[in-house]
Design a protein around this nucleic acid. Structure first.
Lengths: 111, 111
DNA sequence: CTATATCTTCTAAAATATAGAACAATTGAC
DNA sequence: GTCAATTGTTCTATATTTTAGAAGATATAG
């Protein structure tokens, strides 16, 4: 199985963090906050669709009965497969960074 | 500045870990080990070249005076810019995973 | 019905990832 | 010298992903 890409990882984690309020707009906002960068609409929705197609997230139509205008939300949640993919990334990240990170990055700073 | 991609991150960290023995073949081997997957030649060299073009790594021709056949190695080291990019990823990862990771992943496991 | 607010879908272009054939350079055997 | 074996890189083409934002959809308020 292929590894999650950076944006896929961020989208999945954002959905987890947003709990019952995870949909395109809030996911995009959260990712913008955490990265400090601007993200276009497509930069979020396209990977989101791909994640659904791969079975890493599921979506359902959000409650339309809220006192607000606008189109219905498409809400997302992470599937068990999505969790597994995240676990794999977590393991990989640990293996990659464990020994290297501190001393090596310090060395770089003081160069 | 754009975030490092997954493979760029892995290549940079591999170079750090390999210290004075970082070149195409060893980088590829290390990434294969840590991911448990097969990586083609191009899957390593292409990002490696891009990292050099962006100034995140520098290369030099390896010592040719070793008792062995074969073409000269192109050795790599991470530049200060490369370190900075890694630091950014490290911060991002921390922000993304800190609160979410444990309880959320556990919830997933027990679903 | 019109204006406004929210949100998603669609589409195209740019950038990256991925595979592996081809090429290059060095050693040792004869 | 030159042939085979070894080691490693460069080249190049295709597939996939990223990224941007226009267009479209739907709900409310007046």
């Amino acid at each position: 199985m292929k590894l999650l890409s950076r944006i896929e990882e961020m989208v999945l984690l954002s959905i987890l963090k947003l709990e019952d309020n995870a949909y395109g707009v809030t996911i995009r906002r959260l990712i913008s906050e955490v990265t400090g960068k601007r993200w276009s609409i497509g930069a979020i929705y396209v990977p989101l669709e791909r994640l659904e197609h791969k079975g890493f997230v599921e979506s359902y139509t959000g409650e339309p009965t809220e006192m607000r205008g606008g189109r219905a939300k498409r809400m997302y949640k992470v599937t068990r497969e999505g969790f597994k993919a995240l676990e794999e990334i977590k393991r990989l990240h640990k293996a990659l960074w464990e020994s290297t990170s501190d001393w090596a990055l310090d060395k770089g700073e003081s160069k």
